[in-house]
């Protein structure tokens, strides 16, 4: 009995000595330390972005005092987070959320109303996250605002295939689309190519060290009964983020696809989040996508044809990116 009891209590004692057992205190420095540790052990782009985590720790922890207000602490922690320059990373205090602005001040000139009014024919169909129509007898147009619902996209492609064999080109517009489910991006990409084509690779963090990664795992296009294998023009801008960048990265090397517009906003990964000692929530990117040639998309996917609307007066009614896509 004695040995049994000794085993029981020594086991609990051993486990209690684990470094993860002790929690950071709910103090300004405790909150900052918990946040820094989480980022240091989990953020996937520390080496890729040449982040010096120790220097960042020293720089920002020096700004923290015991008597600072919550608002002041939130500002310091937010500034630290923004150093990651990653739109997937955020800090949420329950009232507001801070995240890096991937458009970096570039004025948003995309306007769906201009397209509706000046370019689309009357056969417009509105879905929850999508608008479809024809531009002329041979060009179909799909605008996608969010990667949430693959069924609508499948239906739209079927509809275009049914309208006429004359539809020779689809313009697929993902400007100002801030992303959603990457799986939907894969499903969409698969509709514009044959099945089982390598579209990219995913690399996942698998340990606390900065270079703890899995081997890249290949991602292949899926089978589908509503494929459109003719010409596709993908329209992007700086606000095409996350799953939009995934889609651009997956389609980038397909012969029937041309990407037209601005470089995408990047965001090539998924995020995980942590609750800090004061109940704030911080999130960081935990994996990343490489295109079929092994190129990172975190800094954005470069279009085949770079055109921007930023020089066009907002009330001109002109969309240069769309006009280029119609011509090509």
């Amino acid at each position: 009995m004695r040995s049994f009891v000794i085993i029981l209590f020594s086991t609990v004692l051993f486990c209690s000595c684990n470094k993860d057992f002790k929690s950071e205190e709910d103090t300004p420095i405790g909150v900052f330390n918990a946040m820094w540790k989480f980022i240091d052990k989990n953020y996937v782009f520390i080496d890729f972005k040449n982040l010096n985590m120790e220097a960042l720790k020293n720089s920002y922890s020096n700004q923290i005092t015991e008597d600072m207000t919550e608002a002041e602490l939130f500002e310091v922690c937010s500034n630290f987070l923004l150093q990651l320059r990653d739109g997937h990373c955020f800090l949420d205090d329950g009232n507001s959320t801070v995240r890096f602005d991937t458009s970096e001040g570039i004025s948003d000139t995309f306007n769906l109303e201009v397209i509706r009014g000046n370019y689309l024919q009357d056969n417009i169909i509105e879905y929850e996250f999508m608008t479809t129509a024809t531009i002329n007898d041979s060009i179909g147009y799909i605008y996608l605002s969010d990667f949430e619902n693959i069924e609508d996209i499948e239906q739209a492609i079927k509809d275009f295939n049914l309208i006429s064999d004359d539809i020779a080109k689809i313009i697929f517009d993902i400007r100002d689309n801030s992303g959603g489910d990457p799986q939907v991006a894969l499903s969409i990409a698969s509709h514009f190519m044959q099945a089982d084509i390598l579209v990219g690779q995913m690399v996942h963090k698998n340990g606390p060290m900065h270079d703890d990664f899995t081997d890249p795992v290949d991602i292949f296009s899926e089978d589908s009964d509503s494929k459109f294998l003719k010409e596709v023009r993908l329209l992007t801008n700086k606000n095409s983020f996350s799953a939009s960048s995934f889609l651009a990265g997956m389609l980038q090397h397909q012969e029937n696809v041309q990407i037209i517009g601005e470089i995408t906003g990047g965001g090539g990964g998924d995020a995980i989040s942590l609750e800090l000692p004061n109940n704030w929530v911080v999130a960081v990117t935990i994996n990343y996508f490489l295109d079929a040639l092994g190129v990172h998309i975190e800094d954005g996917v470069i279009p085949d044809i770079f055109i921007t609307n930023s020089m066009v007066p907002p009330d001109s009614g002109i969309d240069r990116i769309l006009e280029e896509a119609i011509k090509r």
Binding site: D20, F21, S23, E24, D26, A34, K37, F38, I272, S273, L274, E275, L276, P277
Partner: peptide
Amino acid sequence: TKETRYTSNF
């Protein structure tokens, strides 16, 4: 419960 996958405290 302290699940360090998503929280830093109990």
